[in-house]
């Protein structure tokens, strides 16, 4: 029986847009166990990204409870929250979001800097990661010199470098062709087999099928599992 990684209990997010209150996420109840591979599906605007961002603690729920590894995130101070996600969560974005001014090596290294990992150790970790993703030859290139697929590989490498328990991927293949997409999804399933929990948002049925569980969102509500 796997441990519960996180659970959402009637989690809600509302924002004020002008005079009206807009509900972006509506009473979400969700349990995620370690080792799961979840695909969030739903039409554009249904709240997938919002949910991922809130789970990733970049945004906050405005109501309900959010527990991560037994800790109540909703009542946590900013500082502790940041410590938590720095330690356990890695992000992968549709638009890769690499830092343009840094090389491949430096991009992958950056999260370690924020975790105060020692220089010698950093070198080893980054080198291993480059090895594993077969991009050693590209380590001194800047993002603009890479293809989209390669950039996303670097993005994933960067998300993985801190050995997170959870990877949040927001349409990770949205900007890629089908061959590159397949590579990335294969990689995800490989990672999942190694024990990393993954939640991805996707439009594609094919991509969703890599997951162990599919959740459908509509207008900020979970409509089916």
């Amino acid at each position: 029986m796997a441990n519960t990684l996180l659970s959402l209990n009637e989690a809600t997010r509302t924002v004020n847009s002008g005079n009206n209150k807009v509900t972006l996420l509506d009473n979400i109840n969700l349990q995620v166990k370690e080792g799961e591979f979840i695909s969030l599906m739903g039409p554009s605007g249904s709240g997938k990204s919002t949910l991922l961002n809130c789970i990733g603690m970049l945004d906050g729920f405005t109501g309900g409870g959010y527990t991560f590894l037994g800790e109540p995130v909703h009542s946590m101070k900013e500082k502790n929250r940041s410590k938590l996600y720095k330690e356990y969560i890695g992000f992968v974005f549709q638009a890769y979001h690499l830092i343009d001014e840094l090389t491949v090596w430096e991009n992958i290294e950056t999260p370690l800097l924020y975790k105060n990992v020692k220089s010698s150790e950093r070198k080893g970790l980054v080198a291993d990661m480059l090895d594993r993703f077969n991009i050693v030859g590209k380590k001194d290139l800047f993002p603009v010199q890479l293809s989209g697929g390669q950039q996303q590989l670097v993005g994933i490498a960067r998300a993985l470098i801190g050995k997170p328990k959870l990877i949040l991927a927001d349409e990770p293949t949205g900007n890629l062709n089908s061959k590159q997409s397949t590579e990335i999804m294969e990689l995800f399933s490989q990672l999942n087999k190694e024990g990393v929990t993954i939640i991805q948002a996707t439009h594609s049925e094919r991509n969703a099928s890599y997951g162990s569980r599919i959740i459908n969102l509509l207008d900020g509500k979970i409509v089916s599992e």
Binding site: K79, E101, Y114, K115, G162
Partner: peptide, 16 residues
């Protein structure tokens, strides 16, 4: 701005 967003999403605090 993008750089700020990325850095925050990979663990940077505002102070940093």
């Amino acid at each position: 701005a993008t750089e700020v967003g990325i850095r925050k999403s990979i663990g940077s605090q505002r102070g940093q």
